[in-house]
Design a protein around this nucleic acid. Structure first.
Length: 494
RNA sequence: GGCGCGUUCGUCUAGAGGCCUAGGACGCCGCCCUUUCAAGGCGGAGAUCGCGGGUUCGAAUCCCGCACGCGCUACCA
C-alpha cells in the first residue's frame, strides 16, 4: 500500500555473527525500501563497549553482501547523515540528552548500581513490578547541576499516568499503561547512550520513516514513542516482526540449531535459497506460491502481508529450496559453482588446480543429486584419488545378501569384459555396453549386482552413475580398483 | 510475579462471516521411472481451525473468559 519512498534501516549491534532471525529483519527492511524506491541504511549500534566483538563488523557486511542486501547509506558507502557507527556519534547523543535535560524532560540520577540492585531485589521479593523508583527525579535542578561532576546517568521522565498507544503495522493497536513504565536510562555513566536514546535519536536524525525490528522491542515501544514526542519528531511507522523459533519451539539460538548466517554459506546453501526461505518465514505472497526469487519478493513485499505469529526455522524446507535453486541453475553457472566449491573444499591432499574437465563433466550428474554444495565433496572425491576411498570389504556384499562368491563372480566378469576394451575405446557408451554384457554372462539383472561395482569404484554403494564414473576415472584406475576389490573379497572369507 | 504478543495439518502458510465437507508447499507413505543414490511424475494419509462461552440464519474468521507458548521486565541490544 505504501507507495511513498520509504527509509528503513538495519541496525545490528556488533556482538557476534548476524543470526538468521536478525538478518530476516534486514531482508524485510531492505525489501520495503527497494519496493518503494526508498533507501535502506545500515547503522552499527556499538554502544555497549563490554559486548563489542570487532570481527562481527565484517561478519555483518559479509552477511548482507552474501544475500544481496545492498545498503544505500552506512559504513563503507557513507551518506548524508554520516557517521553511521554510533560510537562515532557520541557528541550528538550528549547534545540530545542535554536538550532533554534543559527542557526538564530528563534528569540526572546519582543512584549507585548497588542501590539499584537492592531495589530490584526488594521489588522481586515483594512481587512488585521492577523498575526505577524515581528517587532522583525529585532532586532540585540546581542541586543536580551542582553535582554534575559526580558519576551519574541521565534518565528520561516517563509520564506517570495515562496510556501510550502503539500503532503497529503488523499487530494493530497495542495499549500500554504509563504507570507501569519506569524512568529509563538515556545516557550511561560511561558517557555512552543506551539503545533507547541512540536508536531513536538516530532514527530521527536519519529520517527513518519505517522502524522494522524484532518483537523483542515491542515492550519498550512506549519508551520510544514518548521519546519521539519529547524530541518533537513525528513518529515513524512501527513494525515488530515475530521471532523465529528453533525446532524445539524456543527462540532460535545456538542451542536449538545453527543460527549464524555465514555458517549456512559455509555449508553450501545458496543465497537465493536463503532469501526465499527467509522471505516466507513470516511473509506470504498468496495461497500457492512457494518459490519466490529476490525480484518477485521485492516487487510484492508489503508489511500488510507479514504475519504476527512466530515461525519455526525448518531446515528441511531450506534444504528443499536449496536443491530447487541448484537444479534451476544454468548448466554453465552450475559447473562454475562446482569448480569453485571443489577448489576450496576438497581435502588439501588432492593436488590443485583440479582437473576442470573432470568436474565439468561431472557437474550435470551432481546437479540433480545435491542438496547442499557440501554434498559435492563425497560425490567427487573418488575421481581425484588413485585408489578408491577407504571402505570395509563387507560393503562389497552388503546389497548382495552377503553372497561373497557371487560378488567375486561379478568382479571377475567385469574385469574380463572391461579389460577387453582397448584404451581408445574407453568411452561411457562402451563401458556401459561392457558392464551390461554381464547380465547375460551372469544371468542376472544389472540392478542385482551393480552395487558391488559402485563400491569397488567409489568406495560407496551410491553416488553418481557408474558408467560415467568409470569413463571419467579412466581405464587404468578402474581396472586397478576392480582388482583391489577382488583382493578384498578373497581375503574376506575368514 | 507484572506487562505485552501469539495460537489453522509434524513444519511454513492461505484464509479478513457463507466460495472451507479448510487450499498450497516441505516432510512422510505408496506407485511409476531407473545402473546405485537422487531428481522427476502420479497418488495418499495428515488440521473437528488451542479450550469454553457468546454475537449471528450462519464463525477458522467478530466479542469475552481460560489454557498454553513466547517476549520484555539492565547504566544489553
Amino acid at each position: 500500500m505504501t507507495e511513498q519512498p520509504v527509509r528503513t534501516r538495519y541496525a545490528p549491534s556488533p556482538t557476534g555473527d548476524p543470526h538468521v532471525g536478525n538478518i530476516r529483519t534486514a531482508l524485510f527492511a531492505w525489501a520495503l525500501a527497494r519496493r518503494t524506491g526508498g533507501q535502506f541504511l545500515l547503522r552499527i549500534e556499538d554502544t555497549d563497549r563490554t559486548r563489542y566483538v570487532p570481527s562481527s563488523l565484517e561478519a555483518i557486511y559479509e552477511s548482507l553482501r552474501w544475500l544481496g542486501l545492498d545498503w544505500d547509506e552506512g559504513p563503507i558507502v557513507g551518506g548524508p547523515y554520516a557517521p553511521y557507527i554510533q560510537s562515532e556519534r557520541l557528541p550528538y547523543y550528549h547534545e540530545v540528552a542535554n536538550r532533554l535535560l534543559a527542557e526538564g524532560k530528563a534528569y540526572r540520577c546519582f543512584c549507585t548500581v548497588e542501590r539499584l540492585d537492592a531495589l530490584r531485589a526488594e521489588q522481586q521479593r515483594r512481587k512488585q513490578p521492577p523498575g526505577y523508583d524515581g528517587l532522583c527525579r525529585s532532586i532540585p535542578p540546581a542541586e543536580a547541576e551542582a553535582r554534575a561532576g559526580e558519576p551519574h546517568v541521565i534518565r528520561f521522565k516517563m509520564p506517570r499516568e495515562g496510556q501510550t498507544v502503539l500503532r503497529d503495522a503488523i499487530r494493530g493497536e497495542v495499549v500500554f499503561e504509563n504507570a507501569l513504565q519506569d524512568d529509563f536510562v538515556l545516557l550511561k555513566s560511561d558517557g555512552y547512550p543506551t539503545y533507547h536514546l541512540a536508536a531513536i535519536a538516530d532514527d530521527i536524525a536519519m529520517r527513518i520513516t519505517h522502524v522494522i525490528r524484532g518483537e523483542e522491542w515491542l515492550s519498550s515501544a512506549p519508551k520510544h514513542i514518548r521519546l519521539y514526542e519529547a524530541l518533537g519528531a513525528p513518529e515513524p511507522v512501527w513494525a515488530h516482526l515475530p521471532v523465529i523459533l528453533g525446532t524445539d519451539r524456543k527462540k532460535l539460538s545456538k542451542r536449538s540449531g545453527d543460527t549464524s548466517v555465514l555458517e549456512y554459506r559455509e555449508k553450501g546453501y545458496l543465497p537465493e535459497a536463503m532469501v526465499n526461505f527467509l522471505a516466507l518465514l513470516g511473509w506470504s505472497l498468496d495461497d500457492k506460491t512457494t518459490i519466490v526469487d529476490r525480484e518477485t519478493f521485492v516487487r510484492n513485499f508489503s508489511l500488510e502481508r507479514v504475519g504476527a505469529n512466530p515461525a519455526v526455522f525448518d531446515i528441511e524446507r531450506l534444504d528443499y529450496l536449496n536443491g530447487y535453486y541448484i537444479r534451476a541453475m544454468s548448466p554453465d553457472r552450475w559447473a562454475a559453482t562446482v569448480v569453485e566449491w571443489c577448489e576450496a573444499h576438497l581435502p588439501s591432499s588432492v593436488p590443485r588446480p583440479l582437473d576442470r574437465s573432470v568436474l565439468e563433466a561431472a557437474a550435470p550428474l551432481l546437479q540433480e543429486r545435491v542438496t547442499r554444495l557440501a554434498d559435492i565433496d563425497d560425490l567427487v572425491l573418488f575421481l581425484f584419488t588413485e585408489r578408491a576411498p577407504e571402505y570395509e570389504p563387507e560393503l562389497l556384499v552388503e546389497r548382495l545378501a552377503g553372497d561373497r562368491d557371487f560378488a567375486l563372480r561379478v568382479v571377475d566378469a567385469a574385469l574380463l569384459a572391461l579389460d577387453a576394451l582397448p584404451p581408445q575405446e574407453w568411452t561411457r557408451e562402451r563401458v556401459e555396453g561392457a558392464v551390461r554384457s554381464l547380465e547375460s554372462a551372469l544371468g542376472t539383472k544389472l540392478r542385482k549386482f551393480v552395487a558391488v561395482l559402485y563400491v569397488a569404484v567409489m568406495g560407496r554403494p551410491q553416488g553418481i552413475p557408474l558408467f560415467d564414473s568409470m569413463a571419467l576415472l579412466g581405464r587404468e584406475r578402474t581396472l586397478l580398483r576392480l582388482r583391489e576389490a577382488r583382493a578384498k573379497l578373497e581375503r574376506m572369507h575368514g
